[in-house]
Nucleic acid binder design. Structure first.
Lengths: 162, 162
DNA sequence: CGATGATAGTTCACAGGTAAATCATCATGG
DNA sequence: CCATGATGATTTACCTGTGAACTATCATCG
């Protein structure tokens, strides 16, 4: 009887007409995401960056090249105004640099500084370690199956290729 | 080749020393949670409530009784200051009522109004439907297996019983 | 019984996110 | 080529979330 089963039992009393079985997946996914987030946030706080800021830094790091501000908004899904503010702070912190785009002077090219790159290289592997630890009670085959099933769900939710 | 595989391929180029395989689960879970969230947020916006506010309303609804403000903070995981502000807004919107606790006048008893209850009964089933739709490409056995595997992960992350 | 420490909630001050308005630059069609 | 609309990013104004300080009430112990 885990947390989600307890919640479902409560709903069964209040709204017996509703079949809450999809929550066995949906609510668990939401809760796992939240708990993983909470674990990582300690690491982030220790380096004085937020999750949202790390998202910007990792987008730059894995692209391996400077990005236009607009590319960052599409990769992170955050609106342009948010990105502008985050870049302000990241720039002040010395983690990224901004430069006007050569060919299109409306645009901005954002690049990781050496410190920014070092920070990602420290924090990203640590995040992966949290994820690995969460899978400790599953066999290799189970992990693979879990990944596969999640991929099916994800494809349904996010049909577009990019 | 889904989104996560593409991201992992990028990391393999930049940080070949890091084994990113846990992201097949971790990153997918995070992304599915975010996409489900985005779907529901349209329904919420149409009724002019935020996700955080719905969390308060659902906590009250499934408890089936008025709750102390403190109970809401533990059930939602949000700090007290946030709950106070949310209750202010929910009260102004006529969705909850606040009353001083009889036996302990420091405390506050929060109760759903009829409108608040009706709103939950409209929005919660709709959220479940989004979750059900996300599972459309899985067989019954696969859904059960997915739920089971997620429960194992969740138990590892969230060991305490409550 | 008071005094004193604990507890419940709110207030305060400030960070971050966002839609809408704005500014600067670009592209194009007359 | 220049006027006009499109585009990229920033600024503005507002709102929500949160740690810390604060207020009111309770509980306990001398």
């Amino acid at each position: 009887m885990d947390y989600i089963e307890r919640v479902r039992a409560q709903w069964a009393e209040r709204l017996p007409a509703v079949d809450t079985s999809p929550a066995d997946v949906g609510a668990r996914v939401r809760r796992i995401a939240a708990l993983l987030e909470a674990e990582v946030s300690d690491d982030l706080a220790a380096r004085d960056v937020t999750r949202a800021e790390l998202d910007v830094l990792t987008a730059l790091r894995r692209s391996g090249r400077p990005l236009r501000a607009g590319e960052i908004t599409t990769m992170t899904g955050s609106p342009g105004a948010s990105i502008t503010k985050r870049l302000d702070r990241l720039e002040r912190a010395g983690l990224v640099g901004r430069a006007v785009h050569e060919r299109d002077k409306r645009g901005v090219l954002v690049a990781l500084t050496a410190e920014g790159e070092a920070l990602v290289d420290e924090l990203f592997p640590r995040q992966i370690e949290h994820e690995r630890a969460a899978l400790a009670d599953l066999s290799g085959a189970e992990r693979a199956e879990l990944g596969r099933l999640l991929a099916v769900v994800l494809r349904r939710l996010d049909p577009k290729d990019y």
